[in-house]
């Protein structure tokens, strides 16, 4: 049962993005469309899970003075694998993500989970914790991307949702909200998500 908590906790009450405020750096720029957001979420989940697993296996053999550099090497190696994988199988998305794949290395979620959890817990628990936190991260990414893509381009995963005939160009009444595609809107959407989330979880509110 305690294993289950590792998996579900980070989805809402202990969400890495909106509660712990980690890993925003590489998160928001990839949320203009659903597809890159989905791929990014998946990549981060894989890296978090396996870096947690590896560091948990190594935790008794590493002197604590050099642990940061060992962590960075492990994470960087995993990110290189993910990057090569993306380049090989989904080249278009990999081009859209550009430098943000490399920035998974400095994603605070991964370092944070390794430091806070994997260095003191058994491999299997750490692995689940990594999956859970990756899922929590991916959830927020997908929510933000949902609003930005729907209102910004009228599509979801590249499929048209708002009919062409609604557009002013085709004699309709609708036009895309262009500002949704600009970076600042991602921040404002996350701010609103935090607001809604904390309105339901009163114990998280700051005094």
């Amino acid at each position: 049962m305690s294993n289950l908590k590792n998996l579900t906790g980070p989805l809402s009450s202990n969400n890495p993005v909106i509660v712990q405020i980690l890993g925003i750096c590489s998160a928001l720029a990839v949320t203009v469309k659903m597809e890159p957001a989905f791929v990014m979420g998946l990549s981060v989940m894989v890296v978090t899970a396996f870096s947690n697993l590896v560091m948990s296996l190594l935790r008794n053999g590493i002197p604590s003075r050099i642990r940061i550099i060992v962590q960075l090497v492990v994470i960087a190696a995993l990110v290189i694998i993910v990057d090569q994988f993306l380049k090989a199988f989904v080249y278009d998305v990999s081009k859209q993500l550009s430098v943000y794949v490399g920035l998974i290395i400095t994603n605070c979620i991964i370092m944070g989970r390794v430091e806070a959890y994997a260095l003191g817990n058994k491999p299997w628990d750490s692995f689940l914790d990594g999956i859970g936190n990756g899922l929590g991260y991916a959830t927020i990414l997908l929510i933000v991307a949902f609003f930005r893509e729907l209102f910004g381009s009228g599509t979801l995963f590249g499929m048209r949702i708002i009919p062409e005939s609604w557009y002013i160009a085709n004699g309709g009444f609708y036009s895309n909200v262009g500002i949704m595609l600009f970076p600042p809107m991602a921040l404002i959407i996350v701010g609103v998500i935090i607001w809604v989330h904390r309105s339901f979880n009163k114990d998280l509110q700051e005094k």
């Binding site: 600042p184 809107m185 701010g191 607001w195 904390r198 509110q205 700051e206």
Partner: peptide, 23 residues
């Protein structure tokens, strides 16, 4: 500030507004 927005929530929104200003 509304209770739910205090702390990080309002910080995000301010950053967003500053971003619009920087545009």
């Amino acid at each position: 500030i509304p209770a739910g927005l205090k702390g990080p929530g309002i910080a995000f929104i301010i950053t967003g507004l500053m971003g619009i200003a920087f545009m």
